[in-house]
Computed example of a mutant assay.
Amino acid sequence: MTDSNTTNFINPSTFILLGIPGLEVAHVWISIPFSAMYAVAVLGNFSILFIVNMELSLHVPMYYFLCMLAVTDLVLCMSTLPKMLSIFWFNSREIDFSACLTQMFFIHCAAVTESGILVAMAFDRYVAICDPLRHSTILTNPVVAKIGLAVVLRGSMLILPHLFLARQWPYCGTNIIPHSYCEHMAVVKLACADIRVSSYYGLSVTFLVIALDVFCIAMSYIQILRAIFSLPTKDAQLKTFGTCGSHLFVILASYIPVLFSSVMHRFGHNVALHFHILMANAYVIMPATLHPIIYGVRTKQIRNRLLQLLTHKGM
């Protein structure tokens, strides 16, 4: 640390992101899988948006929600990976104080919004399987738009207090963030004040959002399973359950990394810091990378349309 980074100040103009502390010499090598996943995430999610927009048969609630998920994934990875890779490649560590808070907002707002979209997708599957005759009248385009707006507003309103609290704390002693991006707790831990309000609020939002959303998803799938097991044949049961397979894989890809990273950040005091940071980095890029792959592989309409585009270009 230099003297300029350890002198006392109030509300610094810039922060210094270290990347992955302890693994600085390996930054270039670490950047290879992250840059590859970033390329897959951007290309895959833009492909989902393009295919759904071009294919009229996909203009239904399930794929509208999938597009919302793709946009959220793009916001999450594009708000973090460019700066992260600039640290790994060019040692460009400085980030403006306001830019840091803006990045913090988009990261956490996108995470909460994505969780809400997964609930909406579970509701869509519930209506499609348990009340198929009313699916088109319940989930109309205006209703889908209102659900999308509601989950975005929920994410924004829950995360805005993070910014207000982080901005009001006095920062002194150091402006060095031992992280690859402006994660909420990594930033507020630099404050020379009692930050228990920020810590408790952040923890409450994380677990209450996940608990509430997982509960809603679980209730939907309990009803879905009851409807599936009431079908007369095994083939009908498997075929119907198969329509939920992609969503279930996406749920696992979304919740496991963020929950694991959040718990480790607060309670894994004996775990090496670089492992904390690697897990936190993985949680912002892994879901965005896996989601288009899961839907591309498991959804026949998307897979066929993508193959048609690739074949046509190849010809």
Rank of each mutant, 00 (worst) to 15 (best):
I251Q: 07
S115A: 14
S86F: 12
A99Q: 11
S230H: 15
R93P: 05
G268W: 02
G155H: 10
R154Y: 15
I16W: 13
L101E: 03
L290F: 12
R303Q: 04
T2V: 07
C130I: 10
L49I: 12
L81C: 09
C130H: 07
I138L: 07
D124N: 14
V40R: 01
F15V: 04
Q301K: 11
I176D: 00
R303M: 02
L133K: 07
K313V: 04
T2Q: 13
L248A: 04
C67S: 11
G202M: 01
C216A: 13
A128L: 07
L225S: 08
S199V: 13
L149V: 13
S246F: 00
H59E: 04
A122I: 03
A26P: 03
S57Y: 07
Y126M: 08
A26Y: 12
D131Y: 12
V271H: 07
L66V: 03
L49T: 03
A111E: 11
R93F: 06
V143F: 13
G202E: 01
S86A: 13
A191C: 03
H276S: 01
R266E: 15
I32S: 11
I228V: 10
R125D: 02
S156V: 14
M54G: 06
G19S: 04
C172A: 15
L225G: 07
S98G: 07
H312M: 10
I294T: 01
V205Y: 01
V144G: 04
P12Q: 05
V25N: 14
N5I: 01
P257L: 05
F90A: 05
V205Q: 04
C67D: 12
